[in-house]
Each structure stands twice: as structure tokens, then as C-alpha cells.
Write a protein that binds this DNA or RNA. Structure first.
Lengths: 122, 122
DNA sequence: CGGCATCCACCTGGATACTG
DNA sequence: CAGTATCCAGGTGGATGCCG
């Protein structure tokens, strides 16, 4: 674990906020899909994720674009065509999350087990 | 990035859920504080985190205990004394999150900059 | 001291309908 | 196709007060 106590508490608050915005379900899934597939247009992205409302997809994509994680390219054609891909920054974030994905996959069973034991009265 | 596409989609959903519960602000902060300080009782934990309501502290601690991330020890004395410390599982999760903390700390400025640029009309 | 119970304001996210 | 706009149910989290 990093020792955030060693850094400015104001910075720590900013970092915490940043993590809060960045570490949500949809952001992580989009990060994962784009890291794997490269470039995707809106509807393909929706398909790849599965059961995400277009409201959340649009909203999350906007936030990620604003934060410099993805690049949005609009082709001025009819029908409209918009493509999304990770920026370098987005890619590095995906890599950072990798450790958490691995942890979750490896320890899923242990957590389920702990939960069952807890629920059984202990 | 791990290729979750290579694994069972049902497992992936479980992993996503697990990450969703585990990757929240308070969980990450508690993880960090306990990793650093070792063992703490309820009120010291509250102080160390700063501005967390005892409702959220209790709630988050229960969930973490249920998931096998922390160990809760009650000393049958008056006044009550309860201590919390990370389990081995909690420790490994902290380590996994380390990469995200580092990313956030390192790229905070870049994100802020991207956001400013975005807000200025681009 | 370390909670639990209650109330409540806010936000999140889904469903639906409409547009360039 | 790729959104925007609106409405609404449910969840989140803070404040407060009480208890063992």
C-alpha cells in the first residue's frame, strides 16, 4: 500500500475524489472493452458491454472524455458515426486497474466463503 | 489489462459486482489507514479518516468484515472496546489498489488539465 | 465507547420519448 | 445512428437521538 500519509492531505483528498469518479463499474467496463477492442463506435460499445442504458453510456463516456481518458471522433456523415478509443492516459489507468481485476478474480471464492460464514451467525 | 473476455461471463459479472462493492471511497480509505497503522479501535479509526459519519464507518466496517477483509475483536470490558485490523485478504486487496493510488497521484495534474481544456469549449 | 434506529435530502441510474 | 430531455423509483449517506 502507498503511504498517502506521507503526502499533503489536500492532495490526498483530490486523489480520493479522482479515484471515486474513476473507479466505478461502467468506467472500468468501458476501459476494459476499449483496451481490448481498440476503437469502437457508440452502438458497438453498447453491445460489447451489454445491458448498459444509453444514458449511462453517454454520461460515462462524456466524463471519461472530459478527464482525458478517451478520445471521441465524430465523422460528419449521415447517418452519424462516432468513434471512441483510449488515450494514453486511459490506457495507463486500465493497466493500474488490472491488479484489482486480478485480485477480484482470484479471491472471489474466498470472499463468497467469508460471506457465507458470516451470514451463518458468526 | 486483464482479458476478462477470456473468462466465463457469469464469473465476470460476479467479479464486477465484487469490485463495485469493494472499490468505494470509504473502503479504500479504511484499507489504507489500517494497512498503515495496524490495529485501531473504532474511535481512533474515525479520527484517522476524518469526516466520516459513524453510520458510514459502522456500515463499511460491517461489509468489510462480512467479506473477510477485516477482523473485528470485541473486548468485554466497560467501557466497550472494539479493535479492527486487516486480514490477510484485506492486505492483498490493499496491495492491489496500490497501483490505482499511484496512478491517481501521478496523473492528477494531467486529469485536471484535460478537464480544464474540455470545459473551455473544446 | 461503540453502536443501532430513524428520518430525510440528495443523487444515481433506468425507462421512455423525441431529435438532428 | 447517436444522442438529448424528462420523469421517476430506489439507493446513499448525513444528522440526530437513544441504548448496553
Amino acid at each position: 500500500m502507498t503511504p498517502p500519509s506521507a503526502i499533503d492531505p489536500r492532495i490526498e483528498a483530490l486523489v480520493t475524489d479522482l479515484i471515486g469518479r474513476v473507479a466505478d463499474k461502467w468506467t472500468m467496463l468501458i476501459l476494459e472493452v476499449l483496451a481490448e477492442k481498440g476503437t469502437l463506435r457508440f452502438s458497438r460499445l453498447a453491445e460489447a458491454i451489454g445491458n448498459i442504458s444509453q444514458k449511462m453510456l453517454t454520461q460515462t463516456l462524456r466524463t471519461m472524455q472530459r478527464d482525458g481518458l478517451i478520445e471521441r471522433t465524430v465523422y460528419p456523415v449521415v447517418p452519424p458515426k462516432v468513434e471512441y478509443k483510449l488515450t494514453e492516459l486511459g490506457f495507463t489507468l486500465g493497466a493500474a486497474f488490472c491488479g484489482v481485476w486480478v485480485w477480484a478474480a482470484e479471491n472471489l471464492a474466498r470472499v463468497e466463503q467469508a460471506r457465507s460464514a458470516f451470514d451463518l451467525g458468526d
